[in-house]
Amino acid sequence: MDIDAFITAHRPVWDRLDHLVNKRSSLTGDEVDELVDLYQRVATHLSIVRSSSKDQLLVGRLSALVARARSAVTGAHTPAWRELVRFFTVSFPVVAYRARWWWLASTLAFLVVGSVMATWVAGNPEVQASIASPDEITQLVEHDFADYYSENPAASFASRVWINNAWVSAQMIIYSVVLGLPIPYVLYANAENVAVSAGLMASRDKLDIFFGLILPHGLLELTAVFLAAGVGMRLGWTVIDPGPRKRVEALAEQGRAVMSVALGLVVVLFVSGLIEAFVTPSGLPTGARIGIGVLAEVVFLAYVIVFGRRALRQNETGDVERAPDVAPTA
């Protein structure tokens, strides 16, 4: 092949493609069509040159041009940092905010059931006797309840708490595949565990110790559990009432969005685990420890409300960008 003749014949095409790539942000419809056509033609030219010529300079030039044109035609991959920023400023908070009523309902149900059950345990010696012997209750109230938070090294304890709480929250979301029906039971089981401890502590006038040890980390920890329950049940309800979209499309969108919550709660529960390991058993005054827990809770709720409401106003759903089942196709 006469490489000089080849270059002379096709240089205008290459120059035109280079021009279109450089102004890709302001192309007209006809120019976009031309860009696609020239990209395909120059890709063919590159293949011919590679197989018929040893001119590495030409191969390099055409390779770079084709790569730039491909990026203009198909779109560049979103940088990882941008995806991370979008996750924390859009995806996670908007899904949490959209599920706020389910989230609130889970919270209220837990508090009502837990309060009633704790009062019942605290005021009935027969119920207490069915749970444990008087000596065992004394051991729990005087020693075991408080020792639980300090008997292990803080770092390993934080890891164990984090994994356990992440698993509880993950269960809530996993159960959404069966319409979220087991989620109320999981909430009830957790409410029962907290209520029994609260009732036994109250029966021995140790409720101040109970709240002093539970509130620093429990506010954020339980909020994460309630959020997981809320989005899990909301996803289950989507199967029953998908809205204006097809059921499969609505379920796919909500399923992908819920995964944002699952990943976001890993971070939230990590913070909760750190508080439980390093703040709850610390020598700080009770008011200071509770204050740290309240601050963490307020910051998290404010974050969800501010970023979630803003994303909702921008019609964000928390779904991934360019979702495969809703992406435009020719």
Rank of each mutant, 00 (worst) to 15 (best):
E136M: 11
E316W: 02
E126L: 15
S176E: 11
L27A: 04
A202E: 05
R310A: 11
A154F: 03
E151N: 09
E316S: 05
V94H: 02
R310K: 13
Q56I: 11
F87A: 00
W120K: 15
Y188Q: 13
A80T: 12
D18A: 11
T138P: 06
S52N: 15
I137N: 07
V258F: 07
V271F: 09
F92H: 02
V49S: 04
D241L: 13
G283H: 07
V168F: 10
A158P: 05
A170P: 11
G218V: 01
D135W: 15
Y97L: 09
L295F: 10
P285N: 00
L301S: 13
T317H: 03
K23A: 15
T107K: 07
G199W: 01
R82M: 07
A195H: 01
R98S: 13
G212M: 01
W162F: 00
L20M: 05
F211M: 03
V186I: 11
L301W: 14
S176G: 08
Q40Y: 14
A76G: 11
D55K: 08
L140H: 08
S71W: 09
F6I: 04
L269G: 02
E297P: 10
V127R: 12
W101A: 04
L108Y: 12
I131T: 02
H77V: 14
S159A: 15
L269W: 00
A277Q: 10
V66R: 01
V194R: 05
A132F: 01
E316R: 06
A146N: 03
V225R: 06
F157E: 03
P184Y: 01
L140V: 04
P328K: 12
W103S: 15
F270Y: 13
R289N: 01
